[in-house]
């Protein structure tokens, strides 16, 4: 399973939103996207829900917001994401 990294922590709105959605449009089914951002990208959740993505949001060790996103219909990607985040701190 591939992990695709995307750091949008230094972009001014709306750049992070654009870069995140562009990456999601090209996300292969057997991969998940790991996004790092300085804040919770509230606007992205609506987009994820409407486009069939599964997401987990956690606080990384550096204090940044980390999102793990995969296609909702692919069970093995979801299982992998749940495994990855199980010991991480909740974002809020």
């Amino acid at each position: 399973m591939n992990r695709i990294e995307l750091d949008i922590s230094e972009g001014e709105a709306p750049e992070p939103l654009i870069r995140a959605t562009e990456a999601l449009q090209q996300l292969p089914e057997d991969s998940y996207l790991h996004i790092t951002h300085r804040m919770e990208p509230c606007r992205l959740y609506d987009y994820l829900e409407r486009n069939g993505f599964y997401v987990e949001t956690r606080r990384g060790e550096s204090g940044l917001c980390e999102l793990f996103i995969g296609h909702d219909r692919i069970d093995k990607v979801k299982t992998e994401i749940v495994r990855l985040v199980k010991d991480m701190a909740r974002w809020d």
């Binding site: 230094e10 972009g11 001014e12 709105a13 300085r38 804040m39 919770e40 204090g63 917001c65």
Partner: peptide, 12 residues
């Protein structure tokens, strides 16, 4: 709480 991190690229 919303616009400062969004537009001034600060932490939350």
């Amino acid at each position: 709480y919303q616009v400062v991190p969004m537009f001034q690229i600060t932490p939350e």
